[in-house]
Design a protein around this nucleic acid. Structure first.
Lengths: 136, 136
DNA sequence: CGATGTTAGTCTCAAAAATAGACCAGCACT
DNA sequence: AGTGCTGGTCTATTTTTGAGACTAACATCG
């Protein structure tokens, strides 16, 4: 287990040498900086289940502002994770759906999401014990 | 409690239950909001390879500010992902290392990092074609 | 007919967060 | 005595996020 993690770590960092870590040059940063926003994973999770319209997404994630929803969707579309289609209905509606690249990303990403759900209690316990230990 | 975690875990893979999508209540958000910062994954990646001292981490990630390095490390420590040990040497040095919880998280997380490295070109291509298509 | 609601946004301005850079204390070397 | 190293903290400035008003065409309700 430790072995697997170690080799994975090595693989992930293989073409990202520390001494030459350049912000514009590092794939990990370039990709992570987009999906690591506050809202991106939430929207990918919603769209992984099924396509949704703008208003549906807004209702699904109640505390996102329209501004951030628009912007995050556009960023995800720009990087090829999702697709946007406009239907010329009476009040024009827009549907967002997962693109192949997004679905491919969501494979590994969903594993992290599962980990989060499974280990939430452990994290909260660690947090509590850290806070109780005085150095809050 | 156990029930909450189980239903949340189910939600992570399938459709996330709306009623659990309250900011304070959703495990996915609670965990993701911490590891999805701009620096957290970078530091976890560095510490997954081997323990590092404060100054080493700063040199490893040249464009992080001291303030954000301090704060991100403290957040990571608070949530139980990393451990901090002070050595009372002449100029006191501090070593940061992966905690068991962090190593456990890094298993799935490293898969995403690998994905990022492998698909960086596809993302950049999508980005370029989006920008060229006018609506930059 | 006119008031209101729905669609997917954009625009503006205030609040929150990230950053740069100065500063601190203790010790070692010159 | 001056310089540099350690791991930070404090403050001021810039960047990001958020709350809320506004658009514009059509649909529904009274």
């Amino acid at each position: 287990m430790d072995q697997a993690v170690r080799s994975a770590a090595k693989a992930a960092t293989a073409d990202c040498d520390r001494s030459t870590w350049d912000a514009g040059n590092c794939p990990v940063r370039d990709v992570m900086n987009r999906i690591s926003g506050k809202w991106a994973t939430l929207l990918l999770e919603a769209l992984a289940a099924k396509p949704h319209r703008f208003g549906e997404l807004r209702r699904l994630v109640p505390d996102i502002s329209q501004r951030m929803l628009t912007q995050t969707l556009r960023d995800l579309q720009r990087d090829g994770y999702i697709e946007r289609e406009v239907f010329p209905t009476k009040p024009p509606s827009v549907e967002y759906r997962m693109a192949p690249l997004g679905r491919s990303l969501f494979g590994p990403l969903s594993k992290v999401l599962e980990w989060a759900a499974e280990n939430h209690d452990a994290v909260r316990a660690a947090r509590r014990s850290f806070d109780d230990a005085g150095l809050a």
